[in-house]
Nucleic acid binder design. Structure first.
Lengths: 232, 232
DNA sequence: TAAACGCTTCGTCGCCCGGCGAAGCATCGC
DNA sequence: GCGATGCTTCGCCGGGCGACGAAGCGTTTA
C-alpha cells in the first residue's frame, strides 16, 4: 500500500511509542504545567532509576517532544513547545469522551479553569476566547490570533497594569483545542502572557494539587467587566 | 507522585501503545476516510498475516478506537466514532509543525480540501465553518453546533437539493481541529451529511490516491455563493 | 587536589509482545 | 452434507526494549 497520508504509519507508530511507556508519560505529564525540571527530579517523578530516566529523556529529546537547557552539571528539561502541550491535551480526547461526566464530577474546578501548558484553559479559557472574538477584541489571522487596541483599552480600564499595551499588541496567540469543552481557547505567547499576568495580579490562584486555576472573587468581577462569564 | 491529572500516566501510555505498532497505525489510517473494511482486507493493508491482524484488531477494539459490524462470516471494522478520527488527525500536529511547509509543497490539494473521517477539512473546510459562523448560519451551542434556517434557505437558493432542510436542521455538528490550518472545521453528523451531499452533487470530487477533495468549477461557484472562498 | 554530585554510557538480564503456522469454529456455496 | 472461505484461538519463537548496577565524565564544593 502506498502511504500518501500526511502522516505515515511509521511516523504515527513512532509518536505513539514515545507515549507508550508509563515512565515517559509521567515525564511528559509532569512538564505539562510549563515547568522546567532537572533529569534527577524527573527520574524520581517517573519512579525509575537515573540511568533509565536518562534513556527515556534522550528518546523524548530525539523525538522532538522535549527541549533541554544545560547549566553546569544539571540538565533542565521542558516540553519542546506549546504545540507539544496542546497535542498532549488533545491525546485525552478519546478518554475524555468516555469519562467526561465522571471527571467533571470528580474535579469540577479543573473543568472550570486550569492551565494548559502555561495558558488558561477550561470553561473560563474558552469563554474568554469566544467573548473576545465576539467583541472584536481578538482577531483571527492566517496563522494565529492577535489582540486589537480595543482590548488593551478595556484591560487597562479593568485595572490591568501587568503588561504594557504596546507589548501585548505585539504578541501572537494561537487557538488550542480544549479537551473538556471541545472548543478553542487562547494559547501561544499571547495566551501565556495574559494568563501569567492574571495570576500575578491575583485574578487567578494556582491550586496546589493539580493544574486547576481558582478565580478569586475580585478576579471574577474584573473578568465579567471584560465580558468573560462562567455559565453556572 | 499522586496523579490528579485527568489523564493518568497509565492511560496515556495505554493510548500511545495502541498506536505504537506500524501494523495498528496502518489499520487506523486506512479507516480514517470513514470506510468500513473486513478483517482480511485490513490484514493485507497492514502487511501482516490474518492471525496477527486479528490480535491487533482485538486490541484496538478493546481500546475503544474501533467499532465492529458482524455480517455472516465477515467482520467489518470502522473507527469507533468521529472523535477517534479527530483525535488521529490531532496526532499529526507535532509532525505537521516540523514538516508543514514540505507537506504543503508536496500535496497542495490535500491542504486545500480533504476528508477528515467523512467530513470536509483543509482550507475549504475551515473557510466554510468560519464563513457560516460569521454570517450567523451556524450557531455554536453548549456542546456542538447546529444550522439555522437562514443557512438552509441559502443552500436551496444555491441549488442544494440533496437533503431536505428539515432534516439538516435536526443534525448536530461539532468543531474538529484542523491540523494544517490549526483552526476548527465542521465535523459531526452535520458535517458528514453536508460533505457527502456536496460530493454526490458534484461540487467536490474524491481524489483517487489519497483523501484530497477536488472542488469542481461548478462547486466553487456555488460555494462562493454561500460565502465560502479559498484565499489563493 | 580530592571528594561529592548529576548525569550519561555501557553491559546485562528478563519480560513483553509481535510474528507465524496449525488448529478450531463458524458461515457460505455447490 | 461437504468443501471452501473468513476469522479467531492457541502455541511457539525471536527480537526489542525497559529495568538496573557499575563505570565514566564533567562540574561544583571543600
Amino acid at each position: 500500500m502506498t502511504d500518501v497520508s500526511p502522516l505515515s504509519r511509521y511516523q504515527l507508530a513512532e509518536l505513539g511509542a514515545l507515549l507508550a511507556e508509563p515512565a515517559r508519560a509521567a515525564i511528559l505529564l509532569a512538564l505539562m504545567d510549563g515547568t522546567t525540571r532537572p533529569a534527577g527530579e524527573l527520574a524520581r517523578i517517573a519512579g525509575v532509576g537515573a540511568a533509565t530516566a536518562s534513556a527515556h529523556l534522550k528518546r523524548l529529546l530525539d523525538g522532538g517532544l522535549l527541549g533541554v537547557h544545560e547549566q553546569g552539571r544539571h540538565r533542565y528539561f521542558r516540553l519542546a513547545s506549546d504545540d507539544v502541550a496542546a497535542w498532549l491535551e488533545a491525546m485525552a480526547l478519546p478518554h475524555a469522551a468516555r469519562t467526561a461526566p465522571a471527571a467533571a464530577a470528580r474535579d469540577p474546578a479543573l473543568c472550570r479553569a486550569r492551565t494548559c501548558y502555561r495558558h488558561l484553559a477550561g470553561q473560563l479559557g474558552v469563554a474568554l476566547c469566544e467573548a473576545w472574538l465576539e467583541r472584536g477584541w481578538l482577531q483571527t489571522e492566517s496563522d494565529g490570533m492577535c489582540l486589537l487596541p480595543a482590548a488593551t483599552d478595556a484591560l487597562v480600564q479593568a485595572g490591568w497594569q501587568a503588561i504594557p499595551a504596546q507589548q501585548l499588541l505585539r504578541l501572537r496567540g494561537r487557538g488550542c483545542l480544549d479537551w473538556t469543552e471541545r472548543r478553542l481557547h487562547l494559547g501561544g505567547p499571547l495566551g501565556v502572557a495574559i494568563t501569567g499576568a492574571m495570576i500575578d495580579a491575583g485574578w487567578l490562584r494556582r491550586a496546589h494539587r493539580n493544574r486547576a486555576l481558582l478565580p478569586t472573587p475580585d478576579g471574577l468581577r474584573r473578568l465579567a467587566k471584560l465580558g468573560v462569564r462562567l455559565d453556572n
